[in-house]
Amino acid sequence: MRRTVAILLMLIMCTVCTGCADITELGDRAIIQLAAIDHEDGQYRLSALLFSAGGSGGTIDATKSNVIKVTGSGKTLGEAVKQLSLTDGKDIYMSESKLLVFGSGFEDADIISVLNMLYRDMRCSLNTPICCAERAELLTDMEFTEGMTSAEKPYSMILNAYLTGVSPYTTLLDVLADDMGGRKTLIPSFAEGKNGSGMTTDKDGRTVVLDGARLIVDGKLGIHADNEETSGFMLLSEGSDGMPLNYMLDEGELTCEAYNIKVEQDDKGYPQIEASFRTRTGQKLTEEQEQQARKELDSMARAGLSLWREAQ
């Protein structure tokens, strides 16, 4: 009797808990790789790159983009997601999103409520990177030729810039935690560029480039900072472990790396920077070279000073 009950229980658990009931096959899920959200005329426009193996449901073909672009719109983000799901005919799955992009209209619309909805209802992962663009859809329009899916390129651009120390890497968790702590958050910003021949399928070399960063203030997109200001901000906020520097001397243009960077505020609240310098190959700089590199570092810090103060 006991064995019969145990076997029956096991069978029930196998069918109920393993997903045999209320099943959604992997092929029936729209796996969103990149989600771009614009807010115009009171309407949310969600534009997404969905994973599609080889574009034909077959094996993954690295030579193809492996994604399809689908858009949905509505008065709420939920409506936009619903429309997107109806258009694609699949269940939306956002847990594997590589990037979230906020675009036009978020100077007035609230980003935090959108992020909360994406985290709680759409199960977006807390470590999903966040960025912005003047028009978010720009990133889904670009068909990047590099990477398994075209969503990987903008992500790798952000990661590379962050590792170089010139741009922030901000996740969904960072934005939500900063908002709860009453802090401002800097997120990387993209703009259209024309120097990427072969980078996208566009014949004119149209692509996107990192164009500095924007502050999220009280849940809305605030001031925009250019690349120089963003690098300065990263320096002052000790967001970078090392910073590449270019400087001029009589022998021409030289490069070095500032490392072990420490920033302290003086009595008047001005930041004081201390750093060590070395060449890209790890050798020590001459006194003259170090002096020039320090000047370059100070100049970079001055560029980011107003943004740094704004973010305090």
Partner: peptide, 17 residues
């Protein structure tokens, strides 16, 4: 960080990272 107060299951939210 501050998000701890808002997460329903903070340990699981931490594990997501």
């Amino acid at each position: 960080g501050e998000f701890t107060a808002s997460a329903e299951y903070p340990f699981i939210a931490s594990a997501q990272l």
